[in-house]
Amino acid sequence: MATAHIVEGGFADPVFASQSVFRAVMDAMARPGSVLPIDAGISPPAPLNAAAAAVALTLADGDTPVWLEAEMAKNEAVAGWLAFHTGAPLAQMPSDAVFAIASNPAHLPPLTGFALGTQEYPDRSTTVILQMASLSDGPVLRLSGPGIRTTNSIAPRPLPGHFEMQWQAINDLYPRGLDLVLAAPDAIACLPRTTRIGNGEA
C-alpha cells in the first residue's frame, strides 16, 4: 500500500521549516536570478523534487488550488503526498491554479494558459514552480529589472520551449502576468513577471 509514501517525508518541524523556506523564496523573488539553497530535509515521492516540494508545503493549502503537469498528476504518490501535506485541491485547468508544479517543463502548456490576473487584480495569478535539473549549466539568461542592481544571470535547464519568447509575452502583459520559481533539487531561483531577459551573451 502506498499510504506510507503519502504520509512520510514532510517537514519534521513545519513552523520553522516553512519559515526558512519562505525566506528563501522571498529573497529569491526580491532578487531575481539569485540562487538560494533549500535544505528542508524532506523526501517527496519522485518525480517531485525536494525544493519544489518544500515550496509547495510552505505556500499551498486548502485555499490554493494546485495544478500538476500531466506526468505528475497521473502519479498517485505525488498527488496523494501533496494532498496529504498541504490539503490543497487539485486544479483542473492551468487557469484555475494558484500554484502549478511541473517536473518536465518541456511538457508545460503555454505560460499564457495559466491564471494571469486581471488589470484590477494582477495578483490573482499563478505562481509556476518549474523543476530544474540545474540552475547553473543551462543556457545563460541575462536578467534585469526590479531587484537587480544592474544585471544578473542564471543558467537553468531544462526550460520550456521558446522560453524567452514566452517570457517576453508575459512581460508585455504587465501588471498582469505570472511568476516563476525555478526549483533545482537543492536550490531555487525566481523570475517574477517584472524580470526582463536579455540575450545570453555577457
Binding site: P14, V15, S18, Q19, F22, V25, M26, M29, A30, T58, L59, A60, D61, D63, T64, V98, P122, D123, S125, T127, P146, G147, P175, G177, D179, P192, R193, T194
Partner: peptide
Amino acid sequence: EQTKRMIRRAILKGIAIP
C-alpha cells in the same frame, strides 16, 4: 500557520508587482 501562508503569498505577489 494558515494565516502566515496567506500573508506570505500576498508578500510574494507584492514583490512581483512592485
